[in-house]
Amino acid sequence: MQAPCFPLQYLRLLTFLAKSRNMTKAPEILCVGSVLWDIIGRSASHMRAGSDVPGRIIRLPGGVAMNIAMALSRFGLKPALLSAIGQDPEGNELVAECARRGLGTDHLYRSADLPTDRYMAIEGANGLIAAIADAHSLEAAGDKILNVLNFGPLGRPENPFDGLIALDGNLTAGLLEQIATSPSFSKADLRVAPASPGKAERLLPFLRSGRGTLYVNLEEAGLLCQSSFETADQAASQLLERGAARVLVTNGGDGCCDATADGLIQECPPPVLVTRVTGAGDTFMAAHIAAECDGANRKDALSRALHAAAAYVSGEVAI
């Protein structure tokens, strides 16, 4: 029996439809926020303001959303990025690097008018000395980066995305407020982190709405509560009183706390020699998300996240 013969145009249509179904398949997790180039100077010396010391200067993909996505990929998940990247040479190079690392780039907002964002940091043996985040293009793009969740193909207000979303505080306060209250995000499992202490108060909408899981350090928790704390459990308890649904508070090498209405879980990270700090909090968050995706309970997920972050800051994990 002779095989049926289909017109070439029909075969092309089938190929197009197959590709379209593959492109609109929802990712395991969306990472929403800054995707940029990190320019980091590191020295083995202790530093202070005005120090001039030898060291190394590197450039690598960064930004909170990017760091979380890269870490999630290392833990076996398949994240996709929602961010703004320019169509300049730096942007093209960054998108290619994202794809090389297995990160979804189909839904990035590529602007012809905005340059690709950058972050610059100086690190010494005594930790982060100073940093400047130039995320103006992300802020200027605004809600355009969320079009795929508001107008399809990943979601709409009447049929919202119901998977995991990792958000970072480099988004504007207005956009974070929109996400905290919008029907387009009503079914999502929101995991939210400030980009820095200076942007911690942008997370206040998630306290007011009682939505999402917040990942903050002790300083950021104090800014959200307009107070100061000595321990992570004190900070976590206060954040719950202010409306947080769930919060994880880290405190460097001291105790960390995971707090919900069902109770508080505490654990200390393993002691390690710190060789880098930029991206440590993002690694902690990603490892915690990955552990819970793997079925770990709250105690085990916290422990796995702390050990992953310790391995990262010690330099055991390649980036």
Rank of each mutant, 00 (worst) to 15 (best):
G152S: 07
D134H: 05
L164H: 03
A125Q: 14
D88I: 02
S303V: 00
N126T: 03
G163K: 03
A125Y: 07
L224W: 09
V274R: 00
Q266E: 10
D134Y: 08
L128Q: 07
D254K: 12
A221K: 14
S314P: 03
L306G: 02
S184T: 11
P205Q: 13
A296Q: 12
D38Q: 02
H46N: 07
L108A: 14
N126Y: 14
L149F: 13
K19P: 00
A200H: 12
L128M: 08
T24C: 14
Q234K: 11
I58D: 03
D258V: 09
K199V: 01
A296P: 04
A193W: 02
A3I: 09
A44K: 12
L240D: 05
E316N: 05
G62W: 00
L138G: 08
S43L: 14
K187M: 15
G212D: 15
R118S: 06
E267F: 01
L175Q: 05
R156A: 10
S20R: 06
A287S: 15
M66I: 01
L94H: 09
L36K: 05
P194I: 13
A290P: 07
Y10G: 06
L203C: 13
Q9W: 09
Y312F: 09
F16V: 01
R202E: 11
F284N: 03
M66N: 01
P79E: 05
G50Y: 02
L82P: 00
P79I: 01
V95S: 06
G41E: 12
T278D: 00
P153Q: 07
H46V: 15
I129S: 02
R56H: 11
A112C: 07
A18N: 02
L108P: 03
A166R: 12
A125E: 09
D143A: 13
A99I: 05
E292P: 07
S196Y: 13
C256Q: 08
G198S: 11
G253E: 01
D143P: 04
V53S: 06
G222V: 04
I289V: 15
A259W: 06
G315Q: 03
V272Q: 09
G50E: 11
W37P: 04
E177V: 10
A232H: 03
A280Q: 01
V274A: 08
K299P: 02
L81S: 02
G174S: 01
Y312N: 00
F161H: 07
R208K: 15
G174I: 07
A65F: 00
Q234M: 12
G253F: 11
Q226C: 15
A261S: 15
G102S: 06
V53M: 06
A261H: 15
L138F: 13
D88K: 10
D300F: 09
A195P: 04
G222I: 08
S227N: 14
D254F: 03
M70V: 01
G124W: 08
L13W: 02
T24W: 06
I145Y: 15
S228Q: 12
R276D: 00
H107M: 06
P115I: 11
L167W: 02
R74H: 12
E316I: 01
V249P: 09
E97M: 03
P115L: 13
